[in-house]
Design a protein around this nucleic acid. Sequence first.
RNA 1: GGGUUCUUAGCUCAGUUGGUUAGAGCGUCUGCUUGACGUGCAGAAGGUCAUAGGUUCGAAUCCUAUAGAACCCA
Length: 885
Amino acid sequence: MSYKNFADIPKTYNPKDVEDKWYKYWYDHNLYHSEIDDSREPYTIVIPPPNITGILHMGHILNNTIQDIYIRYKRMCGYNACWVPGTDHASIATESKVVHYLKEKGIKKHDLTREEFLKYCWEWKDKYGGIIIQQLKKLGISCDWRRERFTMDSHYYKRVVETFVDLYKKGYIYRGFRMVNWDPASKSAISDEEVFYKEVNGKLWYFKYPVKDSEEFVVVATTRPETMLGDTGVAVNPHDERYKKLIGKKIILPIVGREIPLFADEYVDKEFGTGAVKVTPAHDVNDYEMGLRHNLEIINIFNEDATTNENVPEEFQNMDRYEARKKVVAKFEELGLLEKIDDYTNKVGYSQRGNVPIEPYLSEQWFMKMDELAKPALEVVLNGKVKFYPDHWVKTYEHWMSNIKDWCISRQLWWGHRIPVWYCNGDDHRTLECREPIVSVEPPEKCPHCGSTNLHQDEDVLDTWASSWLWAYDVFTTKEEQDYYYPTDLLVTAPDIIFFWVARMIIAGMHYKKEIPFRDVYFTSTVRDEQGRRMSKSLGNSPDPLELISEYGADALRFTMIYIAPLGQDVLFSSDKLELGRNFANKIWNAGRFLLMNVQNIPVDKELVDKYLDFTDRWILSRFQKTIDMFTRAIDNYEINNAIKIIYSYVWNDFCDWYVELSKQRLYNGTDEEKSAVLSRAISLFEEMLKIIHPFMPFITEEIWQLFDERKDGESISVTEFPKYYGILVDEIAESNMEFVQNVVTAIRNIRSEMNIPPSKLINVYLKTDKLTDEQNKYIKSLVRIDKLKTDPNMEKPRASASAVVKGCDIFIPLEGIIDINVERARIEKEIKRLNGSLEGVRKKLSNENFVSKAPPEVIEREKAKMNDWQAALAKLKSILEDLN
RNA sequence: GGGUUCUUAGCUCAGUUGGUUAGAGCGUCUGCUUGACGUGCAGAAGGUCAUAGGUUCGAAUCCUAUAGAACCCA
């Protein structure tokens, strides 16, 4: 095809020449498009939609490679394979990107109207939002690109809104004034799952609070001094003898001068700090709870960006929280109320988005009641309808689902699905009912209570996950499609979004479709650097996959990632590991090259593929069947790592190292028809091997497959049939004949190497055996450089020869004048020592009465056979050794 | 503090329901311009299976404890 002459095929595989070419070919021929076809079973995957702000990282590579392996494999197995790609609008991330983008243009978000801002968002999305998809294509993934979706497509947008309205009407969604995790950077609430905890080396400050009408002080310890400006109480444990007499007294809050109560609450830990804690109900979850229990005043001291507001003394107003902290501490010191400062390590909640410490903050938000919705979703995982791989994630899932809390779904952002709720601004006719929110898919014309048309819509948008939880079915836009493709078959995702996304998709699926969203969930490994650190932008330890692809090829990258990433374990990645995949690609390339070079001189005839079969052919075909069988079982069980090793070892060790070498004997010395049969068979087998490799390495397999024959336009290895297991081709006799040859050959090579016989030198080999056929001898001779090969069941050991014993055959290599008796003696002695060690173990077992009476008979038989073989070999070796002495 | 997982060769990892002499890749050592491949070929060295007990005829595998590591939740 691309080579005029097969002899021109380069010695090293160059992925750059082929990858873009075949990707375009697949795309142009629309090979991976799926339509409803009732005559075929669907196999469906929906992509975990990457953020439009995302850029390709190693996690995407691993995740999408796995999805592509399964979709390609199942497609070749005859399923109507459909892989739906798409992207996620990512409210917070995108909005901050756009704010930044506008800043560079000198525009401030709040100088714009909502509509103007959203126009910029779409502009940004059109410009940058498709980058990650373009990058993913470099990996060779076989998505159905005609089905590409976006979470803010009009159809999808509408479904998200409808879902909100429906759940509100069913009573699952409510509005509440609650303490939420506030991200002061994006000025929005975030959900519990978006908070991560960092160990921070901080301080513990001890403040003296004066007791009213007394000379006494109560000392409180705090990690957040600035919040004292909002303190409305001091709490102690009711059983704490130190403070019993003070309970009920008043404290004069320093700086502020507020009179606050000292009260008792079981929550207080006597051991922590001084046993007395300051209580700031507006800015700490536990304090908030205590505040409710004891009717404390709730004083909010922060603005939305966590600067201090008008509720604090004037000299502390409009300061950043950390600046306020310094100033408060300084003031305490000045007042002589700072008792001491200790070093203290504590865990601080950070926003996953803004990477700033979150602020517990009271605000009005929308929540979803989860406990009832979660029940069916928990059940289908516990009863195995949805299977997790690895399955230990079930326990984590169960724990979270059984303790599930209400979900804060509103975000104070503009980019996203705007909450479909309107409020009556009221006018003269305003009634009490007008306070009720008007929840509706379409904007209401007027207030249903007073008839006013003066309405305004809720300013907030929904949490992004409250849209992507519909992804598994609403990427399909008609009922017919949902009926055909849903439930999907496989979800491949990272375990860190098990709650964000996996759990919620199951919840949505069970509630709306009364059916699981996917049968199997594959949780990928976490890709780390060589030192085991998470890959991150700030560490700079995250390689650019596109550079890796350009250096090593997408196939090499895909192969290596799967090879080093076992199910359920983290993978330590470094780019030099890609040599493994690159080398394997090169090996495949050269095996193909070998066959194609022979096509120059030997005609290929498909009629001959099963003619002139000898034991080497039966062996390689038998091994191939077993390989298919093992491979299929591994991949069906999501042991991808294992599957790839099975095919790797077959291709490299069985086919290349042995079969190709064996085939040369006949390719160079056979009759014309025999040559043709051997070559045709090798090519036909190699094509089948390429099909198994194809899901892992789509480009190189396509390239070679296309070279083997004149293919029609639109033909592709990716839509051929996957090799099936035919047990009838398994041939144990051929395998054992081959194993015998391998053992003899290896033993001879070992002697050559240890005796330092140069590879160029021909040797004579005498075999004492009654088992080897002429055919086997022919191959032995061709695999080691042998001049004369003699076999005789009564062979006498020639003088001055090196020896080896394999089961069924004694090997003698006469080395008059070459042999170093000391080396040979050492070789034999070593072998004797090894055998003796092994024999000892077996003898011990067999002389143990308990073993003989209790172990199963077949185990005992095996041990006895072992002992006999080893004893025989040992006896031979001993006589050889005596002969040397 | 609760939960999950892990500890096997110098490194990274396999090792099915307990049953050959515990395997692979990388790395190391030796030799090799053998007509597919030096991104290769041939050969070799290298492990008290974290530690201590226990169950069993038999343990890398099952149980208990200890030590260490990672992750999740609070």
